[in-house]
């Protein structure tokens, strides 16, 4: 009983921690003049929202671009991270330590060094200022996380299940679809969420590789924030955090760390 109460308290604190910083932004988005000593705005208005959602602001358009880039980054990460994570977890091979280091490098190195180095290469390849270029750039921070998540998933995966399926008459692709994929699905979802949110929140890489031609939400948000339009910043920020919250809510039950893979302990 006591444990349950403690858990609810912890949950409530965590929720407050996450939601409190958003409250002023939400108020800003519907405020019309909100000066320092006043606890609440004197007047309310939906003007900021109307503008943010209008075609002229370009917010909705960049919402689409951001979604496209994040989705593509997620899918590509998954396609590469599933085999890579499996190899890291299940196979012994020469130079495995170096591979792990190279994989982790983008997560360790300061983002600005990666962005600057990459810019030169992408310029030569004609990838700067294009959406594919930005997607490729986003893979650099997203892929290591997804690969490491998949490696922990596969570390607990019993490959005998695949052998068993094979012996029961499943062809290799059937084994993957009917046995491996269901077993790694929870971990895959968690990894995909990471990849999506990493791409979603990229600022530096999008700016340097996109060269201002690829306008994702973080870029739009930043330009509003620096131009002093607090009401617009609030509205765009609300739009910006929405998909993350949605994705989190959808797969939250897989985020407990348990049940990440088909393993002896995951049996209920």
């Amino acid at each position: 009983m006591e444990g349950k109460a403690l858990r609810s308290l912890a949950g409530a604190t965590l929720a407050l921690w996450l939601i409190l910083p958003l409250v002023p932004l939400a108020i800003w988005s519907v405020a019309h003049g909100w000066r320092f000593p006043a606890l609440l705005p004197e007047e309310w208005s939906l003007k900021a929202w109307a503008y943010a959602l209008s075609p002229t602001s370009g917010v909705l358009q960049s919402l689409g671009v951001t979604t496209l880039i994040a989705a593509a980054t997620t899918v590509l990460s998954a396609l590469l991270a599933v085999p890579a994570g499996r190899a890291l977890a299940l196979y012994r091979f020469r130079g495995k330590g170096i591979v792990v280091l190279v994989l982790l490098a983008p997560a360790i190195l300061p983002g600005i060094t990666v962005a600057l180095g990459l810019h030169g290469i992408f310029l030569q390849l004609g990838l700067t200022g294009t959406i594919p270029g930005v997607i490729l750039a986003h893979l650099i921070p997203a892929l290591p996380y997804m690969t490491l998540v998949m490696a922990t998933v596969f570390a607990r995966f019993d490959t005998d299940a695949e052998d068993q399926a094979r012996s029961l008459g499943a062809r290799p692709w059937q084994v993957f679809v009917h046995v491996t994929l269901p077993a790694i699905r929870p971990g895959l979802l968690v990894g995909a969420l990471f990849a999506f949110l990493i791409s979603w929140s990229q600022y530096l890489l999008t700016l340097s590789i996109g060269g201002g031609k690829v306008q994702t939400l973080p870029l739009v948000l930043y330009s509003f924030a620096t131009s002093g339009r607090n009401d617009l910043t609030g509205a765009v920020a609300m739009i910006y955090i929405l998909p993350g919250l949605l994705a989190l809510a959808l797969i939250a039950r897989h985020l407990t760390g348990r049940n990440l893979a088909l393993g002896p302990e995951s049996v209920r």
Partner: peptide, 12 residues
Amino acid sequence: VMVFQNPLLFPH
């Protein structure tokens, strides 16, 4: 057809 020592039933 091989039956493994561990039943290896597909949990899903």
